[in-house]
């Protein structure tokens, strides 16, 4: 196990280096000269040159790259171009609100869609199964923007069941008052695609030989589904969840934006709108690292659930 984790950490290094190179390339070459962006439309050549020196982009490329790597290593990305706040400070304060919304969405959505998927897999091929699948397809076809716009308008603005937006200081108020509608909408958006996906996982398992053996033992259909099929289908479900976890951090940015939740996702949007490169760069690198660790965690969990997996 330790050897496996060490090997995986070792294998992360080239990927991390690649992410750094990609980010560096993107922000220093694709986008043109950042100095012009920062200086604005009207500025004298002296001002530009001044900013170039400040940013260090008058240096040779390898020096700039080295500076960037040092920034990554020391987790110090300088200050935001638009607010002058420390980038590390920005990220540290935005994680909490994001998780307050994200974790409940993830848990509720997963439990509900696993239950629903197991149910429709149980009655596979029936009218119920087909109707639910068609409803899921239609539900997936409506843009998540519409869910949020209409949900916020109808449930908060018109009916007044929830606050339209806002964020407070106390965790319980944030979770129970301000996050309730965002969580509800997040679950509503995620449940259809997940149910469809998990249903295919269950159907894959139902056709396996060991399910036939379980039936040949005389087990009831409930035991077959809840014990044998569910346990096996959990493997792809867990893998799937872990891999998409860091993506969700960003994925719910629309919810954060609409409900003015000061999270990572909203911060990304703001930074993109303001061309605030240090913030985008930092978030990109951190989320990439988080993704790599989530993948490692997925592999370890995989080992715990599936005895066949050899962690060498």
């Amino acid at each position: 196990m330790t050897a496996f984790i060490l090997r995986r950490l070792w294998q992360m290094l080239p990927t991390l280096l690649g992410v750094i190179l990609l980010t560096f390339f993107l922000f220093n070459f694709v986008g043109g000269d950042p100095a012009y962006l920062l200086a604005g439309k009207i500025s004298s050549p002296e001002q530009i040159a001044n900013i170039r020196t400040q940013l260090g982009i008058d240096q040779p490329v390898y020096v700039q790259l080295w500076i960037f790597i040092k920034q990554v290593m020391s987790a110090d990305f300088g200050v935001s171009w638009s607010t002058n706040e420390q980038v590390s400070q920005i990220i540290a304060t935005r994680i909490g609100p994001s998780l307050t919304v994200l974790v409940p969405i993830l848990i509720i959505e997963t439990v509900l869609s696993v239950a629903l998927a197991l149910g429709v897999a149980y009655v596979r091929g029936s009218l119920t199964d087909r109707s639910i699948m068609i409803v899921c397809t239609i539900a997936m076809s409506v843009s998540l923007l519409v869910y949020i716009i209409v949900g916020q308008y109808a449930l908060a603005y018109k009916l007044g069941w929830f606050p339209v937006q806002g964020w407070g200081e106390s965790f319980s108020e944030n979770l129970l008052r301000f996050s309730a509608l965002p969580i509800l909408l997040g679950v509503a958006v995620g449940i259809a695609p997940n149910t469809r996906l998990y249903r295919t996982f269950f159907l894959d398992e139902i056709n396996q030989d060991y399910v036939r053996t379980a039936r040949a033992k005389g087990l009831s259909e409930n035991t077959v589904m809840l014990k044998h099929v569910l346990r096996n289908a959990l493997i792809p479900i867990i893998t799937n969840l872990m891999i998409y976890l860091p993506g969700l951090l960003i994925g719910h940015f629309l919810i954060e934006r609409f409900f003015s939740i000061p999270g990572i996702g909203r911060e990304v949007i703001l930074a993109v709108e303001r061309s605030d490169f240090p913030v985008i760069k930092a978030i990109t690198i951190y989320v990439a690292i988080a993704t790599m660790f989530a993948n490692l965690l997925a592999d370890v969990l995989y080992k715990l659930v599936d005895p066949r997996v050899q962690l060498k």
């Binding site: 060991y210 053996t213 039936r215 040949a216 005389g218 599936d306």
Partner: peptide, 20 residues
Amino acid sequence: RGREISMIFQDPMTSLNPLF
């Protein structure tokens, strides 16, 4: 099934549940 009549199959590898 399993009590009065029981059955063995062709491919034992896939016929056993891998997780138990």
